[in-house]
Amino acid sequence: MIEIDVRGFSCPIPVVKTQKAMQDNPGEELAVLVETEVSKENVSRLAESRKYSVEEKTVSGDEYLLTLRPPQE
């Protein structure tokens, strides 16, 4: 699993970093740590548009861990 931490970045950087991780690691599961509702929503949208499944877990307050699983071949 590839882990990326996009806390501290405002939109659209979390989406850009997640997209890069998807391109660099095709077929890999990604764990993305975000710290705002907006980043959570936007990264989830990116994942859905790429047919990844999204599992979200609240870490604390506004901090979420998103597990993005690539589509099964």
Binding site: P12, V15, V38, E41, V43
Partner: peptide, 12 residues
């Protein structure tokens, strides 16, 4: 762009 998450915070 909006479908791939290019959504400004202000929109939300």
């Amino acid at each position: 762009l909006s479908e791939t998450g290019m959504v400004p915070g202000g929109l939300h």
